[in-house]
Each structure stands twice: as structure tokens, then as C-alpha cells.
Design a protein around this nucleic acid. Structure first.
Length: 299
DNA sequence: CTTCGTTCCTGTACGC
DNA sequence: TGCGTACAGGAACGAA
């Protein structure tokens, strides 16, 4: 599941293999992949064809390749999306690997005849769209695709404002994990990094946002940055010229996770079995001792 | 207005 | 063996 570090690995791969190249043709093989492009797959293809893609940018889990001065190809990988670059030695007119073919959703070919760009997505939660760039409400001088203007800066951006985050957090009436997953408050954090960061900061996922102290908030943000930086280092090493990213499950998931997916296994700090709670139709993992559950009426 | 539950989708893992 | 069900999960959407 791509969260910020995985998306950044993809972004840097696109910078290396796709930036500066001109789109010759676009095939949309599954219309759901462009469902967020309001004018339909044909318009998506038409707007992209002939355009020279520029250096890709990223905010949170979104990435986009600007073109033509005021537009961009915007991508979200969802749960299972991959952007893969074909082998330059394999002509683009050859069929792709049959194992990929099943979930190939969109294919871009380039005027230089080199490796094509494939959007492969098993569970189809990801999407591509062409969108106009608008001034960023969070940082002067930046532009962002219109469709994601509500997405807050991620904690690795200069534009991330810790003081504003604290103010907005305190104004909310919800649990800290819900807030971390709210991309309009802080972006790039998904279920895995939320649990990992809360474990590092020794905070329970249900702690009320309106009662968090400045120190606790700082600790969470620092923890998010740490765990993301570590993941980025791990993800950055497993890179292959055939692919923009290697398959999302290798490398990254072997990384040391302290709580995520470790139900009933000993906490790496205190040895207490990690607990799994149902949370928003999925799971929240925590250490019952390091992250004491807030008592009703308190915190 | 804010908050929260539901929904989209497919493949894997498991219990009976 | 085979069937049914739970689970994985980002974020748009609608209900309360």
C-alpha cells in the first residue's frame, strides 16, 4: 500500500525515466482508472497526447507531471497502483508481460520510442486524470492540481506549518489517528505510518485531539517524519531500471515495523503483546502498556 | 457546519 | 475439495 515514501520513490523514478519526454499516444484500457477525469477517457487521452511531461511533483500521496504551462497529469496509486516504465530495449509495440496485462489500466507511449509508461492497478482504487494547475493555498509561489487543492502539505514539505497543524488539531473533536488520516489536515500518512508514529510517540490512537498538548503534537509529527525518512531510505535502495518502482510489497514491507500487523507479538520496547482493535472498518495496532488507552471523560 | 459510517474493488487467507 | 466470509485500505460521498 503506497503511502508517502512509496509515492516519493515512484516520483523520483518518473523524474529519471519520464521527465522531458513527449507523449505520442494514450490507451485507457479500463475507464475506472480515469473516473475522476470528468470529461471521460477520450478527453483524457486527447489532452495528454503530444504533450511534453515535465519534472514530477508530489504532495502527500498524490503525484503529478506538469505540462503545457498550466496543466498536469495527476496520479493517485490508491492501494495497489503502480507506475511502471517499460524496458527501453523492449519495443513499445510489443505486448506487456502477461502477468501485468490483467491489471494494466492505462498505457502511455512516447515519441522517442523508448520504454512506455504503464499504470497497473489490481484493486482499481487508484486513478489518473488531467487537471489544471492553480495557485497553492498553503504556500506562496507553488501551484497544485485543482482537484487536490484541499490536500494539506505533508510533513516533509517546507510548506508544512506545524503551528497551524496544532491549532487545527485542537479545534477538532475526534481521535488522533483519525486526524492523522485526514489528508486535509496533514497529508501522506496512511494506516501503517499512523500506527507506527503513534507507537513511537507513545500515544493511544483514540486520544482526543482537542486535549493534546503542544509537546505531544510535536512528538507525533517528529515520529511521522522519522518513520517516513527511514522508509524512504529503505524504499530508495530497492530500485530497478525496468520499473519506476519495484513491486510495492518487496523491500518496503520487510522493513522493521513495530506495531503494524504485529497483533499478539511482543512490543519491541516493553514486551507486552501488541493489541489489535477494530478501527474505521480496518485495524489499529498499539501497545497496551506504552500507549495507554484514554479513560472515558479524560484526555 | 463537523463528524462518522459506507462504499468502491479484487485477491488472499482462513474456517467449516 | 469447495464454499463462504473476513480482511486489506484511500478517500469521495452522504447521513446524522
Amino acid at each position: 500500500m503506497p503511502e508517502l515514501p512509496e509515492v516519493e520513490v515512484v516520483r523520483s523514478g518518473l523524474e529519471k525515466w519520464v521527465a522531458g519526454r513527449t507523449v505520442e499516444s494514450v490507451e485507457v484500457l479500463h475507464s475506472r482508472a480515469t473516473r475522476r477525469h470528468g470529461e471521460g477517457p477520450a478527453d483524457f487521452a486527447a489532452r495528454l497526447t503530444g504533450q511534453r511531461l515535465e519534472v514530477p511533483r508530489r504532495r502527500g500521496k498524490y503525484l503529478w507531471l506538469p505540462f503545457g504551462g498550466d496543466a498536469a497529469l495527476l496520479a493517485h496509486l490508491g492501494m495497489s497502483g503502480q507506475l511502471l516504465v517499460g524496458d527501453a530495449e523492449l519495443p513499445s509495440d510489443q505486448p506487456v508481460d502477461p502477468a501485468q496485462l490483467k491489471h494494466l489500466r492505462v498505457r502511455l507511449r512516447f515519441a522517442d520510442g523508448g520504454g512506455d509508461l504503464r499504470f497497473v492497478d489490481q484493486r482499481t482504487f487508484g486513478h489518473l486524470m488531467v487537471d489544471d494547475l492553480v495557485p497553492d493555498a498553503f504556500a506562496e509561489g507553488l501551484t497544485v492540481p485543482e482537484a487536490i487543492k484541499h490536500i494539506a502539505p505533508d510533513p516533509l514539505e517546507d510548506a508544512f506549518d506545524g503551528e497551524a497543524f496544532f491549532r487545527r488539531l485542537r479545534a477538532k473533536h475526534t481521535g488522533i489517528k483519525r486526524a492523522l488520516l485526514d489528508q486535509s489536515l496533514i497529508s501522506g500518512v496512511g494506516n501503517i505510518y499512523a500506527d507506527e508514529a503513534l507507537w513511537r510517540a507513545k500515544l493511544h490512537w483514540a486520544r482526543r485531539t482537542e486535549a493534546l498538548t503542544r509537546a505531544e503534537t510535536t512528538a507525533v509529527i517528529d515520529a511521522v517524519r522519522e518513520v517516513m525518512a527511514e522508509a524512504l531510505r529503505a524504499g530508495g535502495t530497492s530500485f530497478d531500471s525496468l520499473y519506476v518502482n519495484v513491486n510495492g510489497e518487496s523491500g518496503y514491507f520487510d522493513r522493521s515495523l513495530n506495531v503494524y500487523g504485529r497483533a499478539d507479538q511482543p512490543c519491541n520496547r516493553c514486551g507486552t503483546p501488541i493489541r489489535r482493535d477494530p478501527f474505521m472498518n480496518r485495524s489499529a495496532y498499539s501497545c497496551p502498556v506504552c500507549q495507554p488507552r484514554p479513560r472515558h471523560g479524560h484526555y
